[in-house]
């Protein structure tokens, strides 16, 4: 099957998944206790009769169910998620505004976790049974068990409150006038703790997976063949062991990349990071379920997108995978 056809089919599948997510959200709104209009309007909007009427009209709440569903889905298809009363703006604008901050945070955490985790996992496997392995395995075990939001708070406690080294909240220092470089560094400074917090869990995961994968590949026949050819250890590690061990990691990483966008809620809340996770928390407090679900759908869209990327990346890395649905 040609590359183009493969992509087309995967694209259609992706769209169908998104459709399912949208219908699911629609179902959730209906399933929520109370009048759908108040559910969609949010706590603040529900007390404003004019806003309520707009909501009724926008979502066709007096119309039969299938028309409502159609309106809902059609709206989302053109990226119209309705308006947020509390912020007094279209939801899509809100999301678009906050998305870059989340992407910055999650991508940084992801890359650090991936690189660190793979490095640690390979080291542990190379020295299996000896002290570096023990230290790394224990470390991974500990990181795995730490609650994310608590770690963030403890970081703040240590580095902001006690040591006064790092800023506790937000993405940037407001007010002061800075050059572009200065601004970038300022953001970077704010980024350290949240990214470390978010990355810690994934670091543990990648360390474990890499260690297990490398240990498994080390025992395979073709590694023995490579040794029998008289190749040097470094070459064997690079081209034979690691090149094969990395394959399941790539799969896992690509799949996880998509989930990061929706998984930053706790971190952003703890650090008051101005991303869509924080926005979701605000929506939660305000019972603005429309906004909450909109974020939910957007986060799902990212997962779907990254799954597609994952397939492509993997098919490039593993020659055994032919471009097949």
């Amino acid at each position: 099957m040609s590359q183009a056809k493969f992509l087309l089919i995967r694209l259609i599948k992706a769209i169908m998944v998104l459709l399912a997510v949208t219908v699911f959200s629609f179902g959730l709104i209906r399933a929520a206790p109370g009048d759908p209009a108040t559910v969609l309007a949010g706590e603040q909007g529900a007390v404003d009769p004019e806003f309520l009427d707009r909501v009724r009209a926008r979502y066709g709440l007096d119309r039969p169910m299938h028309e409502q569903l159609f309106k809902y889905v059609a709206g989302i298809a053109v990226l119209d998620f309705g308006d947020s009363y509390q912020h007094n703006r279209p939801v899509i604008d809100l999301i678009a505004e906050r998305l870059p901050a989340t992407l910055l945070l999650t991508m940084t955490a992801f890359v650090l976790a991936l690189l660190g985790g793979v490095a640690m996992g390979v080291t542990a496997a190379k020295h299996v049974g000896k002290w570096p392995d023990a230290v790394i395995t224990v470390a991974a075990l500990i990181f795995f068990a730490l609650p994310l939001f608590w770690v963030g708070l403890m970081f703040i406690l240590l580095f902001s409150v006690q040591l006064g080294l790092l800023p506790a909240f937000g993405m940037a220092t407001i007010g002061t006038d800075m050059s572009l470089l200065g601004r970038a560094l300022d953001v970077g400074w704010h980024l350290i703790m949240p990214a470390a917090t978010l990355g810690l869990l994934y670091l543990a995961t990648y360390t474990r997976m890499t260690r297990a994968s490398v240990l498994e590949v080390m025992d395979l026949d073709f590694v023995r063949t490579a040794r029998a050819k008289g190749l040097g250890e470094r070459r064997i590690w690079r081209r034979h062991i690691l090149k094969n061990a990395i394959l399941p990691i790539i799969t896992l990483a690509s799949l996880q990349a998509g989930h990061l966008v929706g998984g930053a809620v706790l971190t952003e809340t703890v650090f008051a990071w101005p991303g869509i996770g924080r926005l979701a928390f605000d929506a939660l407090l305000q019972r603005d379920y429309n906004l909450l679900l909109a974020i939910f759908i957007v986060a799902s869209a990212f997962v779907v997108f990254f799954n597609l990327v994952a397939d492509l990346v993997y098919s490039l890395a593993d020659p055994r995978i032919e471009v097949n649905a």
Partner: peptide, 10 residues
Amino acid sequence: TIPSFMLAIV
């Protein structure tokens, strides 16, 4: 596919 923590929250 759905982000799990978000779904739990919702």
